[in-house]
């Protein structure tokens, strides 16, 4: 399912909102999650899961073209952990 298909589904299921309006709302939902994480907040949605930032340690990598060793600094990456209900749904 893509974002466009998700928007189609929601439009079908709600009354009084156009597809364009739903598209904007769906956009806001994902943007708000992204924004929360970028300011260091975490997002916890019961039954679905939680989004937070995870630390990645610094490491040595290689430039695959030249073989040269490069230092990759420590960084933070978005991380999603599925909630209990979602885990069970997927694994049944």
């Amino acid at each position: 399912m893509t974002k466009a298909e998700l928007v189609d589904q929601i439009t079908r299921k709600v009354d009084g909102l156009t597809r364009t309006q739903v598209d904007v709302l769906v956009g806001t939902v994902f943007t708000s999650i992204k924004d929360a994480l970028t300011v260091g907040d975490k997002v916890e949605i019961r039954g679905f899961g939680s989004f937070r930032l995870r630390d990645r340690a610094a490491r040595e990598g290689r430039n695959p073209k030249t073989g040269e060793i490069v230092k990759v600094p420590a960084k933070k990456v978005p991380f999603f952990k599925a909630g209990k209900e979602l885990k069970e749904l997927v694994d049944s």
């Binding site: 399912m1 893509t2 929601i10 679905f48 749904l89 997927v90």
Partner: peptide, 19 residues
């Protein structure tokens, strides 16, 4: 509804891609 749709899709083994 958004969360439900995503869950249902994943429950069917379908991936969900949000650009």
């Amino acid at each position: 509804l958004i969360l439900e749709e995503i869950k249902e899709s994943l429950a069917q083994g379908d991936e969900v891609k949000i650009a």
